[in-house]
Nucleic acid binder design. Structure first.
Length: 596
RNA sequence: GGGGUCGUAGUUCAGCCCGGUUAGAACGCCGGCCUGUCACGUCGGAAGUCGUGGGUUCAAAUCCCAUCGGCCCCGCCA
């Protein structure tokens, strides 16, 4: 505790400036500041204190000859004490300028100082990085004092502000939708909230405001947006938290081009305002089928090549058993040609193969293309003719390494897509400093789920089929393309959306394909079907992940670095202890019994 | 649900493979001295449930088993 005579809930004077914002131009001014003690250097006589606030560090000088009381207070100050100080901005003597600090040309000759609060020694240094993350989260308020976190969260705020400013200017209306809503089938696990006044019933926290924003289009808001909090009760990852934010956008009667243009405009505004970078829309558009064939993923990193090659035709009739058997089953051979500039040792190749085997249970065949022939464990099984055809198909040159996997394209391509990223990372091909934006378009509407033993929506059940493919819905539903699109940057999906179904009968038909007969669909989604029946205009939109965007703006690969109070992998908040147990009385009121 | 990895002063880490002295270092912290430092200097000091529990052993930070927690990944996340 500060001494009682020093304790006051009110600061002793008004602040004139932020510490980190003062410069040589301010020399001569009388200023008043407050901030934390970042460092204290006590020379017995003179005392120097680096005072930190959100704008940065500033050196205070306490001279006993100038202000004895202030000097005495400085003598008692320790790390992270919160001080108020008043004094004159003076230019530093020659030889005492600190070129490391933006404020290094000046200092404050303090005339008055008060300790507004004392501090325990911090459990980890505030200036510095590399503390165990559970400790950072336990003392998140101290972690957030750190300059890197201050920068990240302010960058995020700036990005959201830029998005708002762009969308407001483009005529979008910001509307909030409920957090307490209803559980709907499909999608992620819901967070449930018991209803006290309706025992045995539950709200669900929204996984996204998808249906609500569609209904707002039925209502005639024409253009809607929201910085929407979303909740999904699934296991966490470095880039996945149980609650996160989306920039959620919906518009009436859009062409795909209209939504894409809005997304590009918003992203350009974000990059311009946050990083001062001018993006150059329109972004490249890549059909889903092409993305899968060339990169093995629906979110390709276009900063480097190493594209996938289909060598099925080249190895037709091969004697190599693994390949021959795959081809016999109607499967294929997919490969990456690694240029000679990027050499892998035998050991590294073995490690890659072992990694693929462990993760996917699939073997990796490889061959090095030497001047005098192919080398590697499988080379002797491959004849001259097929080697020549493969070399032709993959564009092989001497010194290259050919990495091959046999199997069904749908299974093998994502695996090679993963391998491609591993190679890109290993050879530092992903650190080019480029911003490779693109749209992936023409996703399939449906895919077959082995687990569910039925078709499931690739995007969500409200996505409109491509008008050219409407007949396919009956004949070959899995071949139907969707009016869906994802924005991708450097291998990260930033956002995705679609044109929606606005016709109740078509919506019921899609539900039927997904295994929801009419009555079940009406029971679960009756309010939507009903709403579509009242002159619902065509509509569509997109949603962007706020944290994803912020991560890329901040150059971090952890979502926790752009959230103020994230949860651990076990979905726990180490600072507050959430989730916590609750009183038996609370449970009773909610008609809930917890089973052991 | 599964795989991997980490857990040792307040912090960051060494020690662990190959069991054996009082478990070390740096930073931080506490006290003394110091009027131009900015990683201040200098002298001195305090500080440990080696995550937890069990086992093996004459002896466990070290070997084994279990368990808890952090992180990364698979499953999952329309």
């Amino acid at each position: 505790m500060a001494a009682p005579h020093e304790y006051s809930p009110l600061p002793p004077f008004k602040r004139t400036d932020h510490c980190g914002a003062l410069r040589a131009a301010d020399v001569g001014r009388e200023v008043a500041l407050w901030g934390w003690v970042a460092a204290r250097r006590d020379h017995g006589g003179l005392i120097f204190i680096d005072l930190r606030d959100r704008e940065g560090l500033l050196q205070l000088v306490f001279n006993p000859a100038l202000a004895a009381a202030a000097h005495e207070a400085a003598g008692r100050a320790r790390s992270e004490y919160y001080l108020a100080a008043r004094g004159r901005v003076v230019r530093r003597f020659e030889g005492t300028v600190n070129a490391e600090l933006p404020t290094g040309e000046i200092e404050i000759a303090v005339t008055e100082a008060h300790i507004l609060n004392v501090s325990q020694p911090p459990p980890f240094p505030i200036d510095g990085e590399g503390t165990a993350e559970d400790l950072r989260l336990r003392y998140r308020y101290l972690d957030l004092r750190r300059p890197a976190m201050q920068r990240n969260l302010r960058r995020r705020a700036l990005a959201v502000q830029a998005a708002r400013s762009f969308l407001d200017g483009a005529g979008f209306v910001e509307i909030e939708t409920p957090i307490l809503w209803r559980a709907t089938p499909e999608g992620a696990r819901d967070y449930l909230v018991p209803s006290r006044v309706n025992p045995g019933r539950f709200y669900a926290l929204p996984q996204s405001p998808q249906l609500l924003k569609q209904i707002l289009m039925v209502s005639g808001f024409d253009r809607y947006y929201q910085i929407a909090r979303c909740f999904r009760d699934e296991d966490l990852r470095a880039n996945r938290q149980p609650e996160f934010s989306q920039i959620d956008i919906e518009m009436t009667c859009p062409q795909v081009d209209d939504v894409v243009a809005a997304g590009e405009g918003m992203m350009a505004e974000i990059y311009r305002r946050v990083l001062g970078i001018d993006l150059k829309p329109p972004f490249l558009r890549l059909p889903y089928a092409e993305a899968m064939a060339r990169f093995g993923t629906d979110k390709p990193d276009l900063r480097f090549g190493l594209e996938l090659r289909d060598l099925s035709a080249a190895f037709a009739g091969t004697q190599f058993k693994v390949f021959a058997e795959a081809l016999e089953r109607g499967e294929g051979i997919c490969a990456i040609a690694l240029p000679g500039a990027h050499q892998l040792s035998r050991r590294e190749l073995d490690e890659l193969a072992e990694g693929l085997r462990a993760r996917y249970g699939l073997g990796l065949a490889w061959a090095k293309i030497a001047n005098d022939g192919w080398q590697g464990p499988i080379a002797r099984h491959l004849g001259d003719a097929e080697r020549a055809r493969a070399a032709q198909a993959a564009g092989l040159a001497a010194g290259d390494t050919l990495l091959m996997v046999a199997g069904a394209a749908a299974r093998v391509r994502p695996i090679l897509g993963d391998l491609r990223l591993q190679l890109g990372t290993k050879f530092k091909l992903r650190e080019t400093g480029e911003l490779k934006f693109l749209w992936v378009v023409e996703f399939p509407l449906l895919e077959y789920s082995e687990e569910a033993k039925r078709m499931v929506a690739v995007n969500h059940p409200f996505t409109a089929p491509h008008p050219d493919d409407l007949e396919l819905l009956d004949s070959q539903p899995l071949a139907t393309r969707a009016l869906a699109y994802d924005m991708v940057l450097n291998g990260e999906e930033l956002g995705g959306g679609s044109i929606r179904i606005h016709n109740p009968e078509l919506q019921l038909k899609v539900f039927a394909l997904l295994g929801f007969p009419r009555d079940a669909a009406l029971r679960k989604f009756g309010f939507l079907i009903e709403a579509l029946g009242y002159g619902a205009p065509p509509h569509g939109g997109i949603a962007f992940g706020v944290e994803r965007i912020a991560m890329l703006l901040c150059g971090t690969d952890s979502l926790r670095d752009v959230m103020a109070f994230p949860k651990t992998q076990k979905a726990v908040d180490p600072m507050s202890g959430a989730p916590s147990e609750v009183d038996a009385r609370q449970l009773h009121e909610l008609s809930i019994k917890v089973t052991p």
